Computed example of a mutant assay.
Amino acid sequence: MPLQCIATLHQVPPSDWDALLPSPQPFLRHAFLSALEDSGSVGGRTGWQPAHRLWFDEHGQLQAAMPAYVKQHSYGEYVFDHGWADACRRAGIAYYPKLLGAIPFSPVGGARLLGDRQGCASLIEALTTALHEEGLSSLHVNFTQPACDEVLQGRENWLERIGCQYHWSNRGYRDFQDFLDALASRKRKQMRKEREQVAGQGIEFEWLGGHELSEAQWDFVYHCYANTYHVRGQAPYLTRAFFSLLAERMPELIRVVLAHQHGRPVAMAFSLLDGDTLYGRYWGCLAEFDRLHFETCFYQGIAWAIEAGLARFDAGAQGEHKLIRGFEPVITRSWHYLCHPGLREAVADYLQQERIDVLAYAEQAAQHLPYRHD
Rank of each mutant, 00 (worst) to 15 (best):
L338I: 14
R333I: 08
L310N: 06
V330K: 04
L310H: 05
G342P: 11
C339Y: 13
F313L: 12
C339S: 13
G319F: 08
P341M: 08
H340N: 15
R333C: 10
E345R: 13
E328W: 06
Q318D: 09
S334D: 01
E320G: 02
L343V: 15
R325C: 06
H336W: 02
P341L: 08
W335G: 05
C339R: 14
Q318S: 12
E328M: 11
R325Y: 05
P341A: 09
R344F: 04
F313M: 10
G316A: 07
R344D: 06
Y337L: 11
G342W: 15
G316E: 08
V330W: 03
Y337F: 15
P329D: 02
L338G: 05
Y337M: 05
A317V: 11
S334T: 07
G316T: 10
E345P: 07
A346M: 13
G319S: 07
P329W: 01
L343W: 01
A317W: 02
H336I: 06
K322C: 04
G326N: 06
D314C: 07
A317S: 12
G326I: 08
F313V: 06
E320K: 10
W335T: 06
R333V: 08
D314R: 08
L338F: 13
I324S: 14
F327G: 06
K322Q: 01
W335I: 07
P341V: 07
R325V: 11
E320D: 12
L323Q: 00
A346H: 15
G342F: 12
Y337G: 03
L310Y: 14
H336A: 03
P329L: 03
R312L: 14
H336M: 04
P341C: 09
E320Q: 12
R344P: 07
W335C: 05
R325K: 11
V330P: 00
Q318F: 05
R344L: 06
G326Y: 05
G316V: 10
L323S: 01
A311V: 14
E345F: 12
H336N: 02
Q318V: 10
C339V: 14
K322D: 00
L323N: 00
G319Q: 05
L310F: 14
G316R: 11
I331K: 02
R325A: 03
T332S: 06
H340Q: 15
